[in-house]
Write a protein that binds this DNA or RNA. Structure first.
Lengths: 202, 202, 202, 202
DNA sequence: GATGAATGAGAATTCATTCAT
DNA sequence: AATGAATGAATTCTCATTCAT
């Protein structure tokens, strides 16, 4: 069960390619093997079973992505810049690897026992980042003081995910990253006309 | 292939129950039959095949829900109230039928040929509603004039979906509808502190 | 289990139609019922089960045909005329009812327990007719005295069946009966050139 | 989908055995697998599906037989000897492999889409052989000059098939090949008494 | 380590037959 | 007698997984 070998990576990438095209369930181990250029049995030298491939996808690919979110956020000083970095990185990472994006979006909502734990962990990572940004932003006086962290996280993550989904559905052609700044402005300012009672009175 | 009979409804509800618990793919027709209290073969008197059950779920259940969104929105006069009704109804419909919610959230991201068309149709319905709200809100001077409809739709739909997902993951115990107003306020006012440069200058 | 009623005949005819188009096995009882304009369950008021429909086909249709062979043969006085009548009637009966012809030719070679007995019986009828013709023909000095009855029967029946098969394969358009006299001449005279050593020396 | 392997042959032979005993339709893939001593799934490594087994039977077994007809005919110089070789080989090939004989006779009259093409092809092969024999025989002055090829082919093929069928029904015990020469004499001389008006005047 | 042939459990689906109405 | 909805046994086929080479 060697990880970090060239063949491990080769199989995992092939799997993501195949899963992206057909969905995890519609894909067969034989297809993954063929796409990876190895024999069917070889898969089992690197992965416990088919489910484990998906698990490793989260463990090895998705986790990496989330760690880059962390790093991107850390590169900024102010909360609003951190937020901008978060959204930008989120979009650019998914744009850079559309197969990863497709698999992530499609399989994350299936309540699989195998992946439940790690998905929860990544969700927590995201929440931690947003929490940090919100609290710092409030200290900096840049964000409203009455925010519910959980709700803000859902607002941000939900909207970004939805933008990614739309991009996938459209074929992944357009420039996803260019949506980052408009999105952030929307997060910050909302859709209500300023000075019209929303939401200063809240 | 009788629709609208008692047995049809009975099987469809059973299927949703089973799919919600195990996911569509992990569920067998035999399980659905057992849960519906009918013989395996009976399923095929009402549904073309297993995929057709999922299709009918969208056609018969989800479509109904989206039509209720439409009606709820139509009951309000002003754009902001329409938005509030949309979000409230969205949350309350899903809260009222958690199995429907689970199946909808889990299966909508799978790019199944069978369901693609109807999902796209519902997505369009949603976009039409948001478009109407935004345009009216702008005419009323309540919403910012520089909004990109697509982005606003993703903001709203994405955030609401994410809230629903979190609720599902938490076991569906809490009161989902109570999140409606806070969410709407967030949409309208954003998270930025008013008067701090976001986004009045835009 | 009423026979000889109008509905019995109606179902049997429908069955033959359906079996002719699709083969016995590929046909479903539901298709037969539909083609007969009755409910599925009604079939079982007239036939024990699906196999019984095929059995009744032989019992009621094919047997009738073979009895007409008998009668046609009896109408002639001389052996050669009897033979001619046999072949003519054989061809004309099958030409008159192509569905019967198709089902008979297709299903007779399947060694079904249900139909074995009656097929054997009809085979015996045929052999009796041929035996009679041959023996009479020999007494009349018109047929060679050294014939093996079994072989003659196979020659005649086999050739006639083959002609019918070819006709079916060709779509049943051409005039089958017109092959009768040429066939009989072939039976009588063979394909060898007379006086060239065949088969007088044998 | 490896052909020409030992296991391929093993499964095909087992299938023919099972089909001969029960008929193609009455046989299950599981029975074939068991009879071949392999697992059910193994069948599908060598055959596309159940129908393909029957197709391969024609492609690999029956075609071989027909090619032996060709070769046997080519070994003779004179038309009548060619005819004799054809009939002898036909009977001896079927006698040598009674299971093949049973399956061939039983399934050839079912108008299956899968096998239609190859059966037609073999039928054409047979017709070509007969045509060649007849034309050569006429040139040699040994066969009547007024023969209809199609009819002659049906006479020969039909009679031979009928002889084979009778042999199968009788349990395949008797010596089939010994019927060859009597059959050929019958073909050549017919059943009519020479000099009695059949068919010298034609 | 790598292979890929073989396995056999498991699932979808069909359809002859029954039986309450 | 007639119906046709319901049944569930039976069958084909798939595919994750194993293991001898």
């Amino acid at each position: 069960m060697k990880r970090n070998t060239e063949k491990y990576r080769q199989i995992l990438e092939a799997a993501i390619r195949v899963f992206a095209r057909q969905g995890f369930h519609q894909s067969t181990v034989a297809q993954v093997a063929k796409s990876a250029g190895v024999a069917d049995g070889t898969i089992y030298l690197y992965f416990k079973n088919k489910d484990d491939i998906l698990f490793q996808f989260y463990e090895y690919k998705a986790r990496q992505v989330f760690e880059r979110f962390r790093r991107a956020v850390d590169e900024a000083t102010h909360a609003v810049d951190k937020l901008r970095n978060l959204v930008r990185t989120h979009l650019s990472e998914f744009q850079n690897d559309i197969n990863m994006a497709i698999v992530y979006q499609a399989e994350t909502h299936q309540h699989r026992r195998t992946t439940q734990e790690i998905i929860r962990e990544m969700s927590k990572m995201y929440r931690d980042i947003v929490t940090e940004i919100v609290e710092q932003g409030q200290r900096e006086g840049k964000l409203r003081p009455d925010l519910t962290i959980g709700l803000v996280m859902r607002l941000i993550n939900g909207a970004v995910n939805e933008v990614i989904n739309a991009w996938i559905h459209a074929g992944g052609e357009s420039d996803l990253v260019s949506m980052a700044d408009p999105l952030v402005e929307l997060f910050l300012g909302g859709i209500g006309k300023p000075g019209k009672g929303y939401p200063e009175e809240a």
